[in-house]
Design a protein around this nucleic acid. Structure first.
Length: 585
RNA sequence: GGACCUGUAGCUCAGUUGGAUAGAGCACUUGGCUUCGAACCAAGGGGUCGGGGGUUCGAGUCCCUCCAGGUCUACCA
């Protein structure tokens, strides 16, 4: 029995064929296959109702005709029935479930099946993108975590992914910072904690400039010197960047992030002239109040609210570099798509940016990449306001991860006191950081979310710890019985699933492909989280009801298939979300 | 003022883009370890899906309107 990776797609094709054979015009029938409530089956086709409506005929006879026209391969694999007003239900037979699970037994095999979705495409993912000379704080968490998960999902589904950290390493704030560096730099403090020292210096520069117009003027002069390539200014600027990137990387290491490119704003310094010139020559931009701007007359708001591409003082702003960046990504990486994993408050900016870029590219006859703002909401404290410390400062990301790790360590110490200390620490870091990542990913990214230590680290419900625990239990079964996970020998002779809990788990397993497809299509990792949580839940129920290591070799083999695949899917799924997993905890 | 987002169980959230009797977790009640890890499982109560109108075989989901909260709205990113 051959079953494709994506069972839903297979059913859609079979139904389309049956419709053609039944004389329904192509285009008049959209199969509309969805996963369904387990009470009804595994998949259902909703399309007959709409087609019948259009044709002005009763739906049930049409559904029955389609079912009668299905090929033998479908009938062998599924129980097919017509229900209600005209739904077609498909319930996978136990033998088909086993067959699918035997065909998808490795990560490489899953990837092969999934990679059809974006094969041959190049996607640039723009995420994290902090400003240099500052610590990363909670505000930087979501972009980093969501961006990494989306990058991994796209890669898994066949795309070439360019992870680009578009850092803020240029702009007016560097004038003030360098002004302060020249006067107040404390080399000892810099050696101890460079970012802290730069933050201190920036505060000095910023408040001095605010208090004294002469200082402001000097700061501006510093910026001009830097832009002119003054060696002392440039050396300071490089030091700031190096120290900042090193600090960022320490956070990224803990989150499992590694960028392919770090092309910050400064990289586009010499590329903005072309933006000014082309937009102006193409008549896309105009002059208003001394600035070069783009209006969009067809847009209800942007007909009066312009996008400023060059400030009245002649300088570039983020709109300018963002346009130059799109051009670079298009010409240099040949991007088919560019994703911006950025706070939803910047929605207006991206809408203007994309409108402008498309007009510009159309005028120049360039291929237009798909442009999407992958937005996300704010992290809120338990008072419902943006998460801050008690004193009103931003919570540093390093301290947040430290606390997560510490809280997890207290738990590991309580639950597994006999493990060696260094292992307990490693487990705590994996559980703690993973809990932060998972808490963020498991919620719909577009809405704000409430950050609660207790919920996150309580390790109950839809949390990282629950999934990691399921993995640890499966690993334990194999370890205890001296078996290697996924060893074909241990699985040979398996017969079809029989008990209710075996069948329920197997039915959940074969929907892995659907979860990957859904999460990737919508760029919403929480769909994958939800699937993994439900999978772990089905496993726990099965584990509680059916003993795996039993004497009957056929029963043991089929249960080992379930254990091995649950483990594979949980580990693959978590790694696609950017989480590390554990052997034991 | 305008535009956009949000409103689902006491609390925190899902709801596969219009499908069948709206689902989880927490909290609460009850039961389950001499048996592969109880960081677990099983069972139970809890809802006018913010209000009202509409579209259709069918609406938490789409359109209109009102209410409440949030965000953005010309040279910061």
């Amino acid at each position: 029995m051959h079953l494709a990776f994506d069972l839903m797609r297979g059913l859609e094709r079979a139904l389309a064929d049956a419709a053609a054979a039944a004389g329904i015009e192509p285009g008049a029938f959209e199969p509309g296959v969805r996963t369904s409530d387990p009470r009804h089956g595994d998949f259902q086709a909703n399309g007959v109702l709409a087609a019948a409506k259009r044709a002005g005929k009763p739906p049930r006879p049409i559904a029955e005709a389609l079912v009668a026209g299905l090929g033998d391969d479908i009938r062998v694999a599924f129980e097919v029935s017509v229900a209600g007003p005209g739904f077609i239900n498909f319930k996978a037979r136990p033998a088909a479930l086993l067959s699918w699970l035997q065909a998808h037994r490795s990560r490489a095999g899953l990837e092969l099946g999934a990679s059809a979705a974006h094969k041959g495409e190049t996607w640039v993912v723009d995420y994290s993108s902090p400003n240099t000379a500052k610590q990363m704080h909670v505000g930087h968490l979501r972009s980093a975590v969501i961006g990494e998960a989306i990058s991994r999902l796209l890669e898994f589904t066949g795309a070439r992914v360019v992870r680009d950290n578009h850092i803020g390493d240029w702009g007016t704030q560097y004038g003030k910072l360098i002004w302060a560096c020249r006067r107040h730099l404390d080399e000892a403090a810099l050696a101890r904690d460079p970012i802290e020292e730069f933050e201190r210096l920036y505060k000095i520069g910023s408040s001095a400039a605010e208090a004294d117009p002469a200082v402001m003027e000097e700061a501006r002069a510093e910026l001009v010197r830097l832009q002119a390539g003054d060696p002392v200014s440039l050396a300071l600027w490089r030091r700031i960047n190096e120290a900042s990137l090193a600090a960022f990387q320490r956070i990224y290491d803990r989150l499992g992030i590694r960028f392919d490119e770090t092309l910050g704003e400064s990289f586009y310094n010499d590329k903005v002239e072309r933006v000014y010139a082309e937009l102006s020559a193409d008549g896309i931009s105009s002059m208003s109040e001394g600035a070069q701007v783009v209006f969009h007359p067809e847009h209800p708001r942007f007909k009066t609210q312009p996008m400023i591409v060059r400030k009245s003082d002649g300088a570039a702003n983020y709109a300018t570099t963002d346009l130059a960046t799109i051009l670079y990504r298009s010409e240099h990486f040949h991007a088919d798509g560019i994703l911006y994993v950025v706070d939803k408050r910047q929605a207006d900016h991206f809408e203007q940016l994309f409108l402008t870029a498309r007009k510009w590219f159309v005028r120049r006859g360039r291929p237009i990449p798909k442009l999407q703002h992958v937005d996300f909401g704010t992290v809120l404290g338990e008072d419902g306001r943006p998460l801050k410390t008690r004193t009103g400062d931003n919570i540093k990301l390093r301290e947040l991860l430290d606390e997560a790790s510490e809280r997890a360590l207290a738990l590991v110490n309580a639950k597994s006191p006999d493990f060696p200390e260094d292992e307990r620490r490693r487990i705590a870091e994996t559980v703690g950081v993973g809990s932060v990542q998972y808490a963020d990913l498991s919620q719909n990214r577009s809405s704000d979310y409430l950050f609660s230590w207790d919920k996150m680290i309580s390790l109950e419900g839809n949390t990282a710890a629950y999934l990691l625990y399921a993995i640890a239990r499966i690993r334990s079964i194999f370890r205890r019985h001296g078996l290697e996970c996924g060893d074909p020998a241990a699985e040979s002779g398996a017969d079809a699933f029989q008990t209710p809990d075996e069948i329920a788990l197997a039915r959940k397993l074969v929907k892995f492909s659907d979860a990957i497809r859904l999460a990737t299509e919508t760029l919403c990792p929480h769909f994958l989280c939800l699937y993994l949580y439900e999978l772990a839940g089905e496993f726990s129920a099965f584990y509680n009801a059916d003993k795996v290591i039993v004497d009957d070799p056929a029963v043991r083999a089929r249960r080992l298939v379930l254990c091995a695949r649950t483990l594979l899917f949980l580990e693959t799924g978590l790694s696609l979300l950017g989480l590390r997993t554990l052997e034991r905890m």
